[in-house]
Design a protein around this nucleic acid. Sequence first.
DNA 1: AGCCAGGTTTGTA
DNA 2: TACAAACATGGC
Length: 282
Amino acid sequence: MQPFLCKIMIKIQDSAYFNPKSIFECGQMFRYMPTCNGAYRIVSAAHMAIVEPKGNGYEIQSTNDNYFTHYFDLQRDYTDICEKLAFNEQMVKALEFGRGIRILAQNKFETLISFIISSNNHIPRIKGIIERLSTALGERKHFYGFDYFAFPTAEALASKSEDYFISQGLGYRARYILETAKKISQGFDLEELTALSTRDARKELCSLMGVGSKVADCILLFAYGKYDVFPVDTWMEKVYYDYFDKNKLSAKQISDYFVNIFGCLSGFAQQYLFYYKREQEI
DNA sequence: AGCCAGGTTTGTA
DNA sequence: TACAAACATGGC
């Protein structure tokens, strides 16, 4: 501890487009814990941050300010995005409801594994499984009196057995996690995909066990900053039929329908709609 | 008590 | 290419 040093921290002066509840609970990340008075403790990869209200904005204390400045996508102007996404009445409502959402720039491996776990699964359960794996296999860390566990490395996951992951409640996803962790630890380079087109990067991600088009789109959106994707899950199918059109379409067709409308801002549109719809019906 | 979840894999035509 | 069954688990 160095109590005499002034701790550098991130200050959010204008909270018009920064709301921790919206950011963390909109379904893009799973390692968050609401504490009190609108504050949150979060873990991303090997880093931890504490986000708390201060004055008209927020203060973020973290293990790595550079990491979280990028993570929160703080340089982006969301005023412009929200203006362009106001396509219809339901979009306006979703934008108003989720005003403080920001699409996070998350760790690629953590996002890959987390969204393999997410498939055909409930968010509360996904959170539980991820915390269990992190506690068991992640490096123990310490920050401001809090113990936390880094997200497990590919090597740490690859060193376990399929039965181990079944014992952790992963069900039939146990095999997917093990196979994909092995592939990553054996040299499959997630960073290399950054330079590829969205289409090519998606194809590469889909070559990993447990990654289909929806999970791939979530990884592209939440970890690669590729915003020209529109992940379609059961909630987004409801959004399509309730707010947009009644034509019976496949998930792939629904995704294409929305990308055709929202283009390079599709990922943002999807996230506002997901948060809005799920919070209405949950 | 069943339904369902931020779907993918595998098999079939 | 398109469609359907199988799939483990547990929160609600």
